[in-house]
């Protein structure tokens, strides 16, 4: 189903919503350069291949598809989306590319939000927590004594820090 750019984006958001509701299935987006051909180029038959081999020099002079694309001069971009059995596609021409690209990337950003956030930082944070945890566990026993001596939290921390390396040593 070939749609206009705006309609395509609208339908695509619907697909994302469906996916979210179902919570299953994968959504495929494809993009490729589009030069006006709707059918694939037919493969050469054996005869043709043999002919090409025998007369290799004249075939080089007229490569089959490059002239047509050069005549049009401008390429367009074909974007497809498939979710389950639903298929959408649109063709973006060069003059619409700015608008479409902005809208498209915004849409993807909005809808691909189940991805995990901050991989490296969270990993670093967890490692930092695990490294601090044993330290905090070790001085956990002197904490009540320090608290009973009615000292400030800052002094507690200052007391903890020198004690832990001393214990480690």
């Amino acid at each position: 189903m070939i749609l206009e750019n705006d309609n395509f984006l609208m339908e695509l958001t619907k697909l994302f919503q469906q996916q979210r509701v179902k919570n299953s299935g994968s959504l495929c987006l494809t993009m490729k350069r589009y030069d006006g051909r709707t059918k694939p180029q037919p493969q050469l038959t054996k005869k043709q291949r043999l002919e090409q081999k025998q007369a290799s020099t004249p075939t080089i002079k007229n490569p089959p598809h490059s002239p047509t694309t050069h005549e049009t001069g401008e390429y367009r971009c074909l974007v497809r989306a498939v979710f389950g059995s639903k298929k959408l596609s649109t063709i973006v021409s060069a003059k619409d590319i700015n608008r479409f690209q902005l809208a498209y990337s915004n849409l993807l950003k909005l809808n691909m939000d189940t991805l995990k956030k901050k991989a490296k930082e969270s990993k670093a944070a967890t490692t930092g927590q695990t490294s601090t945890n044993p330290n905090s566990n070790i001085p956990s026993s002197p904490i009540p004594t320090a608290a009973s001596s009615s000292s400030t939290a800052v002094s507690n921390q200052q007391k903890k820090t020198p004690t832990t390396p001393a214990k480690k040593k």
Binding site: E74, Y75, V79, L115, K118
Partner: peptide, 25 residues
């Protein structure tokens, strides 16, 4: 393959530049 949002940003950047190139002359 990725699971993380940061990569998503890079992917999106790469994709939009590719999209631009595909529709250019």
């Amino acid at each position: 393959k990725t699971k993380y949002v940061q990569d998503m940003k890079k992917v999106e950047k790469f994709m939009s530049s590719l999209l631009r190139h595909m529709a250019s002359k």
